[in-house]
């Protein structure tokens, strides 16, 4: 069986845990991973869930904590994560700043397929979506941007489906395969050493 790890990132309250629960069920596994930060190590608490896809493999969803977002760029690695889902809380007045912050962090790492879900937007706050979308263009991104309810399995499924299909197209272009091949020491520079 193959395994596909997908990292879910976003600010607090954006629906990361809810998204994992809606796909993988209520039981999340909590663990910590230690990442180097100067001379000391920083414990990164992760929540994860696994989704078995019959005859295919398993999709491993890992929620990265919002309070460690400044370390995200060093945490993301192509051989550890196949893709990134970024969730942004559309109600938040600082949603645009949050999006910029996360895109900066993500773009500082090796490029990975990305899908963006804007949550809590079903209250009619429509203009935010366009404003958020325009921020993507500053980063030259052409990725899926969907309005989702993280509690709805279909919504999260559609977003992940789009992410997987972006990987499919990227691999057809020979981009991902080459990129994945070259990295043998993924996090060694990031971990305590």
């Amino acid at each position: 069986m193959s395994e596909l790890p997908v990292l879910i990132v976003g600010p607090a309250g954006s629906g990361k845990s809810a998204a994992i629960r809606s796909l993988c069920g209520e039981r999340l596994v909590r663990q910590q991973l230690v990442l180097a930060d100067g001379d000391s190590g920083v414990a990164i608490g992760l929540e994860s869930g696994e989704l078995e896809i019959p005859d295919v493999g398993s999709l491993s969803l890992l929620a990265y904590p919002a309070d460690k977002s400044r370390l995200l760029g060093r945490f993301i690695a192509p051989e550890m994560h196949a893709g990134v889902v970024l969730l942004i809380d559309g109600r938040d007045e600082a949603a645009i700043e949050e999006l910029r912050h996360y895109l900066q962090q993500i773009s500082s790492a090796e490029p990975l397929p990305l899908a963006i879900g804007v949550t809590h937007l079903d209250l009619g706050l429509r203009k935010n979506l366009d404003a958020l979308a325009l921020q993507m263009t500053d980063f030259g991104l052409h990725c899926p941007l969907f309005r989702i309810d993280a509690r709805q399995r279909r919504d999260v499924g559609v977003l992940l489906e789009a992410l997987l299909l972006s990987m499919y197209v990227a691999e057809a272009d020979g981009v991902s395969v080459d990129r994945l091949a070259g990295f043998t020491e993924p996090l060694s520079s990031g971990f305590c050493s």
Partner: peptide
């Protein structure tokens, strides 16, 4: 050392 990503067909 990389993970075994899903094949295109599997994706």
């Amino acid at each position: 050392g990389g993970y075994a990503h899903l094949s295109r067909l599997h994706l």
